[in-house]
Amino acid sequence: MIKLMRIDYRLIHGQVAMAWTSAIGANCLLVANDAVSKDSMRITTLKLARPAGCKLVIKSVEDSITALNSGVTDPYNLFIIVESVEDAYRLAKGYRNIRSINFGGAKPQKDCTRKLSVTTPVSERDMQLLKELVNEGIEIEIRQVPGDEKINVSKLL
């Protein structure tokens, strides 16, 4: 069961490893990103950042979609973490049971045309993808930590 899907370019860090994982009761982290799944240094770093007692799976976006659709992830309280709006979009399009996305942070971009919040700079392309997901009924909210008030992205687009 998917407990949360989060866009956060830092992937696993303090907020994710401590605050979010315990708040949502996750016992498995799925990092879905094409580049990370092929980068042994980043994989090693993420393994070190993994919270104790929590399984960590790192897959490409396409392999993540396949795993989710196959049902192999169903027994887990799953926390999916993606690096970008593009990754979130691809995952949500490929696995139709994603109904909400937490937008925690985006990498500063050269082509940033807007900041939805201090931590969420977006490009024109990101805006288009977010709008499409919102129009399909997917809730996208900005929150750094579980105790923060939700900011609904649909009101910011």
Rank of each mutant, 00 (worst) to 15 (best):
G104V: 05
N69W: 07
G71Y: 14
V36S: 01
K38V: 04
I101Q: 07
P108R: 05
D34F: 13
N102V: 02
I81D: 03
C54E: 06
Y89I: 01
K55L: 13
Q109M: 09
K107Q: 05
V61T: 07
I101C: 01
A52R: 14
I80A: 08
R114N: 03
G104K: 06
L68M: 11
V85M: 01
D74Q: 13
A67N: 09
T45I: 14
V82I: 13
C54T: 15
G94D: 08
T113L: 04
D39F: 01
V36N: 05
S60V: 00
I81A: 03
A106C: 13
G71H: 12
G71N: 10
T45Q: 07
S40N: 14
M41W: 12
L46M: 01
S100A: 11
L78Q: 10
I101F: 14
E86D: 11
S37H: 01
I65F: 02
G53W: 05
K110I: 08
P51V: 05
P75N: 04
E83N: 15
T44L: 09
S60W: 03
Y76F: 12
S84G: 14
N69A: 06
V61I: 15
L68K: 02
V57P: 05
K47S: 09
Y95N: 07
Y89R: 02
G71R: 12
L46P: 03
I65Y: 04
A88Q: 04
D63P: 00
N77S: 11
N97D: 10
V57A: 03
C112P: 00
S70M: 08
P108L: 00
N69C: 07
G94M: 05
A32Q: 03
